[in-house]
Write a protein that binds this DNA or RNA. Structure first.
Lengths: 342, 342
DNA sequence: TTGTATGCGTTATCAT
DNA sequence: ATGATAACGCATACAA
């Protein structure tokens, strides 16, 4: 059986399709009476609008594109390791977007055999807006998308004149350092993530806090590794453990990446926190499974996702008057048993 | 600047829109020469088709709906815990679908303030097909969708005359039991998941294998818990540990749910595997992080996702001649250190 | 081989 | 308050 269209309803109600459309869209220039009748019939007939037709006519798709590295072609970079933080954020984003009447579709690189850029894909699908998270923000294709006229919101990265939601890296690192300091540690090493905005903020906060606390960190205590990448953290950990003057506490880029450090420490026959203290970042489920429990900063993935959706909905609803906003979501220090009292 | 349409190209090439359309769709009744010229101009002008218009005309959206409990409204059930297995499957599904020219959109319960069923949502969006995973397969809304005329593929559940991909539960459990038996265990407890198809197969395989091996399992060794739910596994574990004649090995519904068992065992001051042996199921990343490493059945999430996409693409491409297929993907026993040699 | 004309389902403009 | 009609961008049956 064919799907119902407004034509069917019009026929059934002895009115024109125009009238049906108005009734269904709650227009004002229509009598309550007929509007009610039409809506009732529509419900009886199981009518639902056709998104394609509506999009074609109104130029609005009520569909949001999500650009996320783990999915699609870039996903292979992460080699099948689920990035819990982003999955949570996206999940919450989707729930909030749905609440406002939007569906969510993943942005990909091509459609069929035709390769297209992210931007082109968005045009093709008529996305009303896009949310970007967990990608390489220097990628020309990402920049093309961000600099286009499509409303966009980014997570964990701020572009000029675009909305963004980031976690509070500055206070997060500050809280962490204060906590470690309070436990009596003075030799604190910091394995930081890739050279992206997030890391810049964290490093600045780390240095500032240490200065305020009057502790000086030798350059050899600062190590670079990749986010969400245990192997590179294992290497950095090995280097730190090889120092004559070892740190008493190591800060990792994130909870997941810490796994690499954990295994390396284990390999050295050292135990946490008796021989060496550690802290993570993100507060993923895993961090509470580790024994000892990992002390970390818990990200509020729900607020991040929901806020991103709200900002984007605002931007899409009234693009003209919209002023980009940067929202900073605070994290929470979760105390585990991974930092020893000295 | 407005987007390009076939009209613009037609004007530019001094041909009709029909000719342009044919050229772009590689129709045969058009000269190579003009076709080339048109395609070249289209590329120069940065033309991309409008998905909505195309969908409206052809009644094909090249968009697949994904129904997954963790996302959308049902997600709240899982309380923010990422289900790694499904995320992986969906990720791989998406990559393969993209390869065939399909985009992927999440199926939700409503569009704006209007509540609609999953099926209605699919009609509204014109999805060419749907993939269903990780939901309550008895939910009337899911059944409505499955029994509709929309091509569908399910993961981990088989519906009559619909395509499905499942892991090999029978052999998985069989391998696990054989392994445990080989380690000298005879008192094997099985905490199984919810009463769904998957569980039925696993239970049957468990009983059959035990019978073949000539070991009899007391009823009190069989416990019900929920999948992916540590608390219920903690309860079941507590009950097992309270028995006069304790099992020497406990099988859990999945690696993640095992966390509950792990904590309970810890609480009893027992150690794995010295005091009690355990095995999981799924082979998620976590299982290799546990100390001791968990012995488990690793699911091939890539093959599951890719196969599901392939089946669905076939079904969508030629719905008339398509014959539903049930593909069973084998798992692999991953030996950890969680089962003691008796 | 190319073009004309029509319609997909909806919204919006302008009459009535 | 309601209706006739055009238009959104594209694909296709049919005519030329």
């Amino acid at each position: 059986m064919r799907d119902m269209t407004i034509k069917d309803i019009a026929k059934r109600c002895n009115v024109s399709t125009a009238t049906v459309s108005k009734a269904l869209n709650h227009a004002t220039d229509i009598s309550e009476e007929t509007a009610d009748r039409i809506r009732r019939v529509a419900r009886e007939l199981g009518y639902f609008p056709n998104a394609a037709a509506r999009a074609l006519k109104t130029n609005r798709s009520y569909n949001i594109g999500i650009l996320f590295a783990e999915y699609g072609i870039l996903g292979e970079l992460i080699k099948g390791q689920v990035h819990e933080f982003f999955v949570q954020v996206i999940n919450n984003f989707q729930v909030e977007a749905e609440r406002s009447g939007y569906d969510v579709t993943f942005i990909t690189h091509h459609i069929g055999d035709t390769k297209m850029s992210y931007f082109e894909h968005c045009k093709y699908r008529n996305f009303d807006g896009v949310m970007i998270a967990g990608v390489d923000f220097d990628d020309p294709e990402v920049l093309e998308l961000v600099n286009s006229d499509i409303p966009a919101v980014t997570v964990d990265h701020v572009f000029d004149y675009r909305s963004a939601v980031t976690l509070d890296n500055v206070n997060g690192i500050r809280d962490l350092v204060h906590y470690i300091y309070g436990k009596g540690h003075r030799k604190i090493a910091f394995i930081h993530g890739d050279d992206v905005t997030v890391t810049k903020y964290r490093l600045a906060s780390f240095y500032k806090t240490c200065e305020e606390l009057g502790i000086s960190i030798p350059a050899e205590y600062m190590r670079a590794a990749h986010f969400h990448d245990p192997p590179s953290c294992a290497v950095a950990t090995r280097e730190l453990l090889a120092l004559r003057d070892k740190p008493t506490c190591i800060m990792y880029p994130d909870d997941f990446a810490f796994i690499g450090g954990m295994e390396e420490i284990e390999r050295h026959g050292l135990s946490i926190p008796d021989d060496i203290s550690v802290v993570g970042f993100d507060g993923i489920y895993l961090s509470q499974i580790f024994r000892p429990r990992l002390t970390t900063i818990k990200q509020d993935t729900e607020r991040i996702g929901v806020e991103a959706a709200k900002l984007l909905v605002n931007a899409m609803t009234s693009p003209k008057v919209y002023i980009p906003t940067h929202t900073i979501i605070p994290g929470t220090l979760m105390e585990g048993d991974s930092v020893k009292q000295l």
